[in-house]
Design a protein around this nucleic acid. Sequence first.
DNA 1: TATTGTTATACTCTATAACTATA
DNA 2: TATAGTTATAGAGTATAACAATA
Lengths: 178, 178
Amino acid sequence: MAEQAQFEELARQLSAVGAVKRDLGRILPMDCPAGSAAVLTLLGRHGDMRMSKLAELLSVDMSVTSRHVAHVAARGWIERHPDPADRRSRILRLTPAGLAQLDELSRRTTHLLAERLADWSDDEVSQLIRLMTRLRTSFGDCRSAPVRLPAHPAEDTAPVAVQTTPAFDETTRTPAST
Amino acid sequence: MAEQAQFEELARQLSAVGAVKRDLGRILPMDCPAGSAAVLTLLGRHGDMRMSKLAELLSVDMSVTSRHVAHVAARGWIERHPDPADRRSRILRLTPAGLAQLDELSRRTTHLLAERLADWSDDEVSQLIRLMTRLRTSFGDCRSAPVRLPAHPAEDTAPVAVQTTPAFDETTRTPAST
DNA sequence: TATTGTTATACTCTATAACTATA
DNA sequence: TATAGTTATAGAGTATAACAATA
């Protein structure tokens, strides 16, 4: 277990890493903001999936996912096919144009990183990736921890398995006349 | 130098770490959003400074800094004193109420991190801090590259920061970038 | 004329709530 | 009744540009 001063410093670095993210965002194509890029990247990495799965991988609300997906679909980078097994669902799939866009994103991003991290060793980059991944796991697991998953692992392979089963839905307290 | 696949993965992790930041943001007091928290944290760590210096440490435009500072000042957490040496400038200083608020922020943040990272070793946290700090430096240096730092480069868990000028030099006239 | 800081405007990202259509 | 997804609305963060005051 680490000390308090370390946690304060870690919080500071987490806040500050936003500057790096903004730098990466600045090199994106005009019509492909970070949210769209994330959608394309995850579809490219994990293959076809439904909205709810994508929302889980993005760690954002499905309403947010829906907006990003609509933006990406409007540009022809993905298609939304109805799921024959559950017609409420829509299966997302990269189009050839989407693959091309994804290639362009990858090209720009890796170019910038290669330039900025020119003096990093292969091992250092791996270390950072490993620790950031673990950080995300340490946080993300709490969203599925108290939930007892049913026997069937749903579909596909779940790398993080955050299958949020709404165990507590107490957000409907009062209509709250806004 | 790392490979392309590593850079793609790093970009993915940088994008995904936003979820952790949002989790941290959710435990902040109602009237103290992340931008305000960052202002208080940096003033607590680096001491009194002017707007432009704070903007540099935040790595955001001064217009953004101005908004955050106005929010924080309106709640009495900082004071803005005119700089006698340059009356265009305003020196920012934490008030006792600001210090109290900063303590509360630190308490909440470290509590959440200690909970989530309970199974992390002291050394792992240090590694992550070190690598994130270096990442920020590798990116931020392009903004302050032409600046020559004085003999003492600060060590250990130092402010890191972009620090284009020594802290004791008040009349910053370095063109920086922009 | 250049710099410090503020304000106005616009855009992105996010969450909540209300809604639909299926299940 | 419950779930998958959409849309409307609101709030926070950021950048650009126009502006004020001072250097």
